[in-house]
């Protein structure tokens, strides 16, 4: 008998053993998204370096209060954004996160959207800080 799990093995794996958990103390950008009504608060921290005049995400970490899906999408967006230029990173869609993690109940897809928004917010925060420095 085939048992279709509520979460895929990958979601569970990332939830149980996240690889990108933590805070970057001297982060160049911080994205804080979510609200407690839906139950998820996500923070993404990025460290940026310039490579050939392009801004690249050198390091990215997260901190999340939320369900197993929110924790796993937080961890996955870090993997997908690390080492990428802003332009490349912003191309990562919520569906890419969902695809990487395997099946997820439909009502949890919003956690993928949240992770995508978190990354965008972190980059925007970096840009804002850069502007105010000028």
């Amino acid at each position: 008998m085939v048992q279709r799990p509520y979460y895929s093995k990958k979601v569970i794996e990332r939830f149980m053993h996240p690889r990108n958990l933590g805070v970057i103390k001297d982060a160049d950008g911080v994205g804080k998204v979510g609200n407690m009504k839906c139950g998820d608060l996500m923070e993404l921290f990025i460290k940026v370096e310039k490579k050939k005049n392009k801004e690249v995400i050198k390091d990215i970490k997260f901190r999340t209060l939320g369900c197993a899906a929110a924790i796993s999408t937080s961890d996955m967006i870090c993997d997908l954004a690390k080492g990428k230029t802003f332009k490349e990173a912003l191309k990562v869609g919520f569906q890419d996160i969902a695809d990487k993690l395997g099946n997820m109940p439909p009502q949890k897809i919003h956690c993928c959207v949240l992770a995508q928004q978190g990354l965008k917010a972190a980059i925007e925060d970096y840009e804002k800080k850069k502007k105010s420095k000028k």
Partner: peptide, 10 residues
């Protein structure tokens, strides 16, 4: 600081 669903899954 810990969400209910996450506790249930764990």
């Amino acid at each position: 600081g810990a969400e209910g669903e996450a506790i249930v899954i764990a």
